[in-house]
Design a protein around this nucleic acid. Structure first.
Lengths: 161, 161
DNA sequence: GTGGTTGCAAACCCTTTGCATAGAC
DNA sequence: GTCTATGCAAAGGGTTTGCAACCAC
């Protein structure tokens, strides 16, 4: 599994030259097929459908259970285990990022660009912070032999007293 | 359970006027007794011992399992369930903070002051970032009816390619 | 046909809970 | 004596895994 793809290519017309002969899906899904192939994944019905659900609308924050429910509502036959596997594969391929949160449930974010999150403490809701990202002054030196892979910023919110 | 105590008072001589008559513990633990009482917790053998393990040395990052093992090594009879309960009570009392990380395991930090973390992606290690905290420019406006409870910053590290 | 993928159920890990016993006040 | 804390084991929630059936190529 490579980390070469970017979710943006999913919506970039320049990269949607899809050979539809390879796809059994409708035209709207054909670029998903190519994207999956480019990442070394076979474009199965489940993966294509989950990819569409995740990426056809704007930024999304999902956990496995939510995405599974949503898939069933859209009559996509898929098991929860496959949703877990697919989310992990999409993360490994660089289509999704995992969001760092306190708690036991893992959330994924379809927005791979540089941005940050509000986390509402009592409800568990996760929101993109609108506008430009908070600027970080003076990033620390990484320890010897290490490099900085990224910086996660979560602004925790609570209802005003 | 109140959130009024600060871990710093655990090491502040000004607040260590302990009435040893109330304690069955040795002198080194007497201030722990007072600290627990001030937070509304009975100073049981397990809570005092765990508090000592956590706070007698400098900043620490622990999860329940690690602390449990450490307690057993120090011949402190305590069950894993009690370690979980005690960590949650200490967090509610404001002695510990929970660290936001990707993954399902919950880590606690004995350092309640304003600081941030390195997280090593392949090993899962958690380190304080030395020196001054990264400064955040232009904190975003909290949505209507909300206030900012805190800002978590995690700098993810990976081995240099 | 070959080899990756799916679905189910079971296993797994971490955490919390119920209840009887032990301990602090 | 009263009421809380502990310990154990069982339950719980989220996630991963083993394996047979299935599907893309």
């Amino acid at each position: 599994m490579t980390r070469t793809m970017d979710y943006k290519s999913l919506n970039n017309p320049d990269e949607q030259a899809c050979d539809k002969a390879l796809c059994t899906e409708k035209s709207s899904t054909s670029c998903m097929c190519d994207t999956l192939r480019a990442a070394g994944m076979r474009p199965t019905k489940q993966r294509v459908a989950l990819g569409e659900l995740l990426f056809k609308s704007g930024d999304r924050h999902v956990c496995a259970e939510i995405l599974h429910e949503e898939a069933l509502e859209h009559d996509i036959p898929v098991s929860l285990a496959t949703v877990y596997n697919t989310l992990n594969q999409f993360r490994d391929a660089g289509f999704l990022r995992e969001v760092a949160l306190v708690g036991t449930r893992v959330y994924f974010d379809t927005n791979m660009s540089d941005h940050q999150h509000f986390y509402v403490e009592n409800s568990g809701a996760l929101l993109d912070i609108p506008g430009d990202p908070i600027e970080l002054e003076k990033l620390p030196q990484a320890p010897e032999g290490m490099e900085i892979a990224g910086v996660d910023v979560v602004v925790r919110l609570r209802p005003k007293a």
